[in-house]
Amino acid sequence: MSTPTHEYHPDSTGSKIGMWLFLFTELLLFGGMFLLYAVYRVKNPADFHYASLNLDTKTGAINTAILLTSSLTMVLSIGMLERRHRKASLWFLIITIGFGVWFLVNKYLEWSHKIHHGIYPGSEELTGRTAGENLFYSLYFLMTGLHGIHVVAGMVVLGVMVWMIGKPHHRVLPVTTLPVDAQAHAVSVTVEYSEDAKLDQQKLIRLENAGLYWHLVDVIWIFLFPLFYLIS
């Protein structure tokens, strides 16, 4: 008879399906805002164009490069874990988080620059300008802000992964996992990480899913960048 506790069988495909569905909902979340963007841009093409010229394309481009590179380091981290190079995987993960920080610092500077010039939702400066510009900046702050929150969330997830992979790489199993005659003598059983295939696989699945999330954050930015910085 089986034990009453729920056993955990890692189902790689299953958790991928779950993750993809979740990513899908995230895309739709931004989809709602892209819808607003589309409507307002069609209504105010000239104003949107003019406002876009005032965004700093260079910072935007740098940020795009940062996120793209971070997706690469993310993939490398997963690849390293697959080959059981735990340390290397950990380092690539930390570099990925570093890129996230860099991105946010740039974003912070960009936002403060705008706010310094009196451009923020509902500001006097903006109220004096055209309706289209108001909408442009409102959407800009809303969408890049929400994206920023996603970057932070992604970094938290990656941080958890660092902790998970960095943890002492063995686990203690209950004595009952030993053959019956050996149980009486043992206090506990320690399994080396590298020998514990099940745990290994579980970590890999989680890291892959975390990676998917990070790519999503990247992909959304790939849409935001041209829509706000490059329209003409």
């Binding site: 909902t25 895309l27 739709l28 805002m33 939702p121 509902g122 055209t130 108001n134 909408l135 409102s138």
Partner: peptide, 30 residues
């Protein structure tokens, strides 16, 4: 899965409007 995110973003906008005063639904501001 397909519909709830749209509600989520709509509600985010209501909250953002109330807190940050974006004016996305305000005809006076386009």
């Amino acid at each position: 899965i397909l519909a709830t995110p749209i509600l989520a973003v709509t509600l985010i906008m209501v909250m953002a409007e109330r807190i940050l005063n974006l004016g996305l639904f305000d005809p006076g501001r386009g």
